[in-house]
Design a protein around this nucleic acid. Structure first.
Lengths: 145, 145
DNA sequence: ACAAATCGTTGGTCCCACCAACAAGTGCTA
DNA sequence: TAGCACTTGTTGGTGGGACCAACGATTTGT
């Protein structure tokens, strides 16, 4: 299962940006592979999770919560609706908005995806002792502050 | 300078994969913006650095060192050659290979880019105390092991 | 009543990371 | 030595994630 080389010039290999990039590719591949096996991509999970968390919402609001551009919300909702995991209905008073909500099937699918996603976290963090995991997440959070 | 929302459902926000993804976007943006200001993208720096480090090489070998697909090497060398930062010459005995080498201009540009890239590292890691920086890089390396 | 803002949609862009196919050239081997 | 297998560079394509611009329809503010 040899993936990409991950080799780099010393000048590059030393860089924090490079190491972070490698880590991201690693993590992303773990996650994306598992999601893809279920026929999903990253946007799908984020959108489903946002829906479950805050309930029905307009697409703009949904994008806000899920961190997606509204154009990406549109196409993502399209795909999820085609699979019956989400339903789009007109807003009762505002003709511009369309309210998106999770269907029972969608909720079920989200739960099973969540299991998969949790497994990926464990797999990813497996090399670290529990205390190191917490430390790692603390440092990442600090870098993002 | 408010960039993307970076908001996410709790289910997603908790995930190590998500935090890593955010960190990557943050780091990538810092770096890509500075490189773009000089008219470069990530591939360019990696390729120039690989060239400087190991000297002239065929494009396949170059791709190996820089971690680029050979098709991406081809187009990247095209761009760099058009700017006179790199030179492509035929291999003396093997008619298939083209040997790529850094021009003096390319070496100069690489040095100035390296300064920029170093600054980005400092900016990125600024929120961390020196000991935390080392710890962070150690943990990242452990995750990639 | 009209201008301004909002919503969803379509159709782009960009970068990074890949893959497939092809012509030209080389090397092996039968 | 003739042929086949392989390598090299190139072209062109795919895909995901993250964006942006513009448009019609609708609503809101004045």
């Amino acid at each position: 299962m040899e993936r990409t080389d991950d080799s780099a010039p010393v000048r590059v290999a030393e860089l924090a940006t490079w190491q972070i990039s490698r880590l991201h590719r690693h993590a992303h591949q773990l996650l994306a592979d598992r999601l893809a096996a279920a026929g999903f991509r990253g946007y799908d999970y984020r959108l489903l999770a946002a829906l479950e968390e805050d309930g029905p919402a307009s697409q703009v609001a949904l994008g806000q919560r899920a961190g997606l551009d509204r154009s990406d919300v549109a196409t993502t909702v399209d795909r999820l609706a085609a699979r019956g995991l989400v339903r789009r209905s007109p807003h009762p008073t505002d003709g511009r908005q369309k309210i998106v909500e999770l269907t029972p099937d969608g909720a079920t699918e989200l739960e099973s995806l969540t299991v998969v996603v949790r497994e990926v976290q464990d797999e990813l963090l497996a090399p670290l002792a529990p205390s190191d995991r917490a430390e790692f997440l603390r440092l990442v959070a600090a870098l993002l502050a």
